[in-house]
Structure formats: structure tokens, C-alpha cells
Design a protein around this nucleic acid. Structure first.
Length: 511
DNA sequence: CATGGCGTCTCGT
DNA sequence: ACGAGACGCCATG
């Protein structure tokens, strides 16, 4: 009923991996022009073979290209599963490492099309190599987009419009929304819709009209004009909808999380607290030691708290113009701004792609494209203690403990081991010292390359790991959440990529 | 003209 | 049978 397809990749001996040029038609989802055949005059019909039709429950591929998002998602599977990875044969890769270069900015060139040959590697290193390749592919893709932390490439198609609309309405402050805000909710919380063909909006409207669970609500002017009305939940059906939501939630929570822009909002958006508390996982060390691994701050050095500047998420949330409408059936808690309407308030907006960050790495020629430095301030809303973190981490599925923190890399053990390896080799800084650039682990890189990399590695949580971790997600740019623990390092040359891969495979071989 | 509401048809499960 | 997208038409701002 709620299938979400994942690309299964398979690397075979000697097979090569090609990075499709990001932004091209080979890089992911179809463009609306390819899939949408809706025209007012009816001259454009559905002339496509049924199998070629756009279907929201299926990943939309073009010409066998590999979507980096799938790769990244796939990479989140733990090494223990060692899923094979099958990459469509492009037939265009010949040498071990090839690249063409395209202008990224005035000063920096980045690979536009990169091919890497995968051969003569062990099963284990294959999997790990693949994982790293996926990550790098993602880096390259977003690098070329000028938006290295674009979350939009982390796409899992969320299914069931009925549920999504219900979620939107349920999490609204008033319990009723105009369709446009339902759209907004969906695009904001489910990145798939950001670039999805417009057909989904049609389906939303269709659902609203057809489904008896939804009903039109008088707007504030008291008129019920055909256009621009509010949509609410049918009180008589709320219970049933809630049941459906619970079913959906339990059916495949991992997929739902992956489809979300902020997986940590899973519980809040789906309106359900975990049924029971699980004991905290037996973290071997102090809290900050554990958590710093999975959620490094993206700061070259620890930043002091600045109480004078309230965190972004603490800013006042604009009142909805529909705030006057009080849903009678909603539990009181859903009316709390902090847990409902604020979710899709401008506080959660992401900076526009390519907008220079005020706090990038100034040494870099592409400082303007740098991810902003995370501040350690905590939004009051997320100022949770470890118990709060604990609650976030439980959902009856232990695999989410890490997924909650890092939707793109599930295997804590792998990260931890790799981290330890790097640490032993003095390749990363100690927690309380200034963060060392990760690129120092790549002997192939010269100094210039190192300084031109995007340096975002700082494993410091300074004893407040839980909230900081949360803040790192919530504050400033949720796009980066997918990089927690992945150390998004931009590479100025393919040597860097090769070096990274080499170091990664070396690290894994030591495990 | 863009957007929204809604009916009908078709398809996939 | 049911859910959902495609498509079309009309109303509204």
C-alpha cells in the first residue's frame, strides 16, 4: 500500500561507476515536462506507455542514470547488510579516473563529470568504497549545483497523499489550512515534492475534494468561496485517520524518516509519542564522546555560546492568518506553536541555494558557498536533556538511534571505528582542541587544496551533546542535517577524491 | 492568467 | 474495490 522504491545498486568486479553530471537530465528526477501531460486544450495527451508514466510511488529515472540520492540512501544501509550495488552500465568510463572540468565559480573548478573505476577490491572494501563513492557523488552533485548541502537530493518518495494531508492539517496550528499551505507543508517536510512534477498538487486537491476525511472550513471572512477556502479534518473521521497514520508510521518508519527533510521531526509530525521507553543504549563513554561522532559541528573551532543572539528557531513565529479558527477535535497539545505550526514557519526555511553564508571558511576561494558555521546555541524548543534525546531515539526500531541523528549514515559502528582510526592516526583533532582539517588525512593533497576545501569537521559538543546535536539539525540550515557525521568536505581536485577514497578504504581495511 | 475545486477516466495494486 | 494520477472544465482572484 505504501511502497517506496529504493534503487539497489550492484558493483561487480571491474565495473565502473560514472557520476552523471549534476543538474542534467541524468541526475535524478524527471522534469515536469517529461512527466506531466496536463494541458488545458487537451492537445497533449498521455501518449506514453503506461510503464513510462510518472508514478509517485516509483522512483523516476531517466535513461538508467543513477540518482545520487539513491546512492546516498543506499549508503545509509549498514555494512553488515553488505547490499550489493548495481550501477547501470554507462559504457563511457574507460580509465581509472577521468574527469572533465566545469566552471563552478570564477575561482574554483570542480569536476563536472567524473568516472571512477571499481576493480580489484574485496567485498568489504567494495561496500565501503561504494558508500564513500556515494557520498562523494553527492558532494560533487551539490558542488556543481552550487549548493553543496542541498537536501533536495536526498529524495525518497513519500507515499499516500491522504496521510500527508492529514499530517499537514493535524500539525497545523488551527487544524485547517488552505491548499497552498498544505503544499508548503509537504514540500518543506518531504523534499521529494520540492522538485517533483506538479502532478502531486493536483492529487492533493483531488484528495481533498474526494476524501470524506477532509472538509472545507469557513474561512475567516465567513465566506465559502470556491477558491481559496480552508481545508480541515472531518471530526467524525479523525480517529480513523489517526489509525491509518499509526499504521503507516509503523509499517515502515525508516522509509518515512528517509523521506523527511528532518527525520527528527518524525515523532512530532506523526503526532505520536513512543509507546514505551527503551533503556538508553550502553554508550561506552561519556555522552559527548559518543555523540560528537555522529553530529560534528560544522565549525573550524568551537564557538562560544552567544546568549545575546537567540537561535534561529527561537524567533517569533508569525501567526497564521487562520489562527482564529480553532479545531474542536484536536487535542490541546497540537495547538502549541512550538510543536505544530512552527514546523513550517519561516523559521524552518532553508537559505536559498547559493546564497553566501556569512560564516563560511574565509580562507577558501569559495567561501561564499560554504556552509555557515554552526553555533552552539540551542533553540529553546529543542533544549532537551538526554532524556529528551532518548525519547527522540526510540521508536521500537533500534536502527533509528543513529538514523535520527544522521539520516544519511546509519552505521554508527562504522563511523565510530573510522573515527577512531582517524583519531589514532592523529588525523583529527581532539575534542577540545581546534579542529583539524580532515583533509590532512589525504596525503595527496597539497596545502592549497586543503585550504580550498570545505572544512566542516569539528567533533566538539562540549558536554552538551544531545541538545547541540539537535541544534545542529534544527538551526540555520536543515540541508546539512544529512551530513552529520559525514564530514562534508569539498574537493578541489579529483586527486582529493582519490585520496579520500584511498584513505577510506585503508581505514576500513584496518578495521 | 494563475490557481483552486472537482468530476471523470484510467491504471496499478 | 480502492487509491491515486491524468486530464479537463469551470470558477475565482
Amino acid at each position: 500500500m505504501f511502497p517506496v522504491s529504493f534503487l539497489t545498486l550492484q558493483i561487480k568486479e571491474g565495473q565502473e561507476i560514472c557520476f552523471p553530471q549534476p543538474g542534467s537530465s541524468h541526475s535524478g528526477l524527471r522534469t515536469p515536462a517529461l512527466s506531466r501531460r496536463h494541458s488545458a486544450d487537451g492537445t497533449i495527451g498521455s501518449d506514453r506507455a503506461p510503464a513510462d508514466r510518472f508514478h509517485p510511488y516509483r522512483r523516476q529515472f531517466s535513461d538508467g542514470a543513477v540518482d545520487a540520492s539513491d546512492c546516498l540512501l543506499q549508503s545509509s544501509s549498514s555494512l553488515s547488510s553488505l547490499q550489493e550495488v548495481n550501477i547501470p552500465d554507462t559504457g563511457s568510463c574507460s580509465s581509472d579516473v577521468q574527469t572533465t572540468w566545469g566552471e563552478y565559480s570564477d575561482s574554483v573548478q570542480v569536476p563536472k563529470f567524473t568516472t571512477l573505476s571499481v576493480s580489484s577490491i574485496t567485498e568489504l572494501s567494495k561496500a565501503f568504497y561504494c558508500q564513500q563513492v556515494h557520498i562523494l557523488q553527492h558532494i560533487l552533485m551539490n558542488f556543481n549545483r552550487g549548493n553543496i548541502f542541498s537536501h533536495s537530493s536526498l529524495l525518497v518518495v513519500p507515499s499516500n497523499f491522504f496521510i500527508l494531508i492529514f499530517m499537514a492539517l493535524k500539525n497545523s496550528k488551527t487544524g485547517s489550512l488552505p491548499v497552498s499551505e498544505i503544499y508548503s507543508f509537504m514540500t518543506e517536510h518531504f523534499p521529494y515534492f520540492k522538485n517533483a512534477p506538479d502532478g502531486w498538487k493536483n492529487s492533493v486537491r483531488h484528495n481533498l475534494s474526494l476524501n470524506k476525511c477532509f472538509e472545507k472550513v469557513e474561512n475567516k471572512n465567513g465566506n465559502t468561496s470556491r477558491k481559496g477556502c480552508l481545508w480541515g479534518l472531518n471530526p467524525a473521521k479523525v480517529e480513523k485517520m489517526q489509525e491509518e497514520l499509526h499504521k503507516w508510521r509503523r509499517k515502515d518508519p525508516q522509509t518515512i524518516r528517509r523521506s523527511m527533510a528532518k527525520p527528527e521531526d518524525f515523532d512530532r509530525l506523526l503526532g505520536e509519542k513512543p509507546d514505551r521507553l527503551r533503556p538508553l543504549p550502553p554508550y561506552p563513554s561519556t555522552n559527548n564522546t559518543t555523540l560528537k561522532r555522529v553530529a560534528p559541528t560544522y565549525s573550524p573551532a568551537p564557538l562560544p555560546l552567544n546568549p545575546a543572539q537567540p537561535p534561529l528557531a527561537c524567533r517569533p513565529v508569525p501567526q497564521s492568518e487562520y489562527a482564529h479558527i480553532q479545531p474542536s477535535y484536536l487535542p490541546h497539545t497540537t495547538l502549541q506553536p512550538s510543536s505544530s505550526f512552527a514546523l513550517y514557519s519561516p523559521c524552518g526555511q532553508q537559505p536559498a541555494a547559493g546564497v553566501p553564508s556569512p560564516s563560511g571558511c574565509l580562507n577558501s576561494p569559495i567561501a561564499g558557498k560554504m556552509p555557515p558555521v554552526y553555533k552552539v546555541g540551542l533553540p529553546g524548543e529543542y533544549n532537551v536533556d538526554l532524556r529528551g534525546m532518548h525519547e527522540l531515539l526510540q521508536d521500537g526500531d533500534t536502527s533509528y538511534d543513529i538514523d535520527t541523528l544522521n539520516p544519511s549514515l546509519t552505521d554508527l559502528q562504522l563511523q565510530g571505528n573510522l573515527w577512531e582510526e582517524l583519531r589514532k592516526d592523529s588525523l583529527v583533532s581532539e575534542p577540545h582542541g581546534p579542529a583539524t582539517h580532515l583533509s590532512t588525512s589525504f596525503p595527496q593533497q597539497d596545502h592549497h587544496q586543503q585550504t580550498s576545501c570545505l572544512q566542516t569537521f569539528s567533533p566538539t559538543f562540549e558536554g552538551n551533546a544531545g541538545p547541540c546535536c539537535k541544534a545542529a539539525y534544527e538551526d540555520e540550515d536543515p540541508d546539512r542535517s544529512c551530513w552529520n557525521g559525514l564530514h562534508p568536505v569539498g574537493y578541489s581536485g579529483l586527486e582529493s577524491l582519490a585520496g579520500y577514497l584511498t584513505s577510506c578504504t585503508t581505514s576500513i581495511s584496518l578495521m
